[in-house]
Amino acid sequence: MNAIALADPIADTAMGDTLLYLEDVTVSFDGFKALNALSLAIGKGEMRTVIGPNGAGKTTMMDVITGKTRPDTGRVQFGDRIDLTRLDEAAVANLGIGRKFQKPTVFENLTVFENLELALKTSRGTFATLMARLDGTALRKIDEMLALIGLGGHKARSAGALSHGQKQWLEIGMLLLAEPQLLLLDEPVAGMTDIETEQTAKLFKELAGSHTLVVVEHDMQFVRELGVRVTVLHEGSVLAEGSLDHVQKNQRVVDVYLGR
């Protein structure tokens, strides 16, 4: 498999400094191995798409990276020396790792503006939050983000009243306002219209380079549109890696996933 990957054009360009490194990560729930000796390296500024059938371990992988689930064995390293397996969700988020959930998760009873306000990169301490006031810079950042995610006219609406696609965009906007280094996006275009999907692909391409993105997606059209290196997960480990065309030709990938 390695030999094939080397022959692939995208494989050569991907690796610079490694930002996120998973090594031999295993997670089991009641004997079922959700992740089975998973190893994965994501370069700084890289955009990576992760595909795989249901139950392949995509969401569990995100849980492990973001501190929600502790792996039984293995190492998860962020940057040069930070071990993510020792940290909880809040600490991981404060390192600059943002996560978008599969189901859009925004604060439904808060307004769009308030959702973004909470996401804005500021001190997260309890007393700092109690005393926090929005200054001009913060307001400008929120307004810019509202424009970018196309919700400028909705800022006083409660987030629960938005359409599914708008909620997806609001959640992406919230992630970006936290100024993360690494973005983990679980099915970001689910429920979006074709035009919204296209706009999202455009936004992600702009973000790559200055940010590192890991996109889990089922929508092959969207994966093709992004046109970056693809990792195929199956039964908790990497089945294949390379460009979409390359992995689509892989017989095992066809058997377990694409062929069905």
């Binding site: 969700e89 600490a91 009873n109 926090a132």
Partner: peptide, 20 residues
């Protein structure tokens, strides 16, 4: 803002955690 964090907690506690 802490009050808004509290209301956010009521709605989606995990999202609050993942915001840091």
């Amino acid at each position: 803002k802490l009050g808004r964090v509290c209301r956010a907690l009521r709605d989606a506690e995990s999202r609050v955690r993942f915001l840091g």
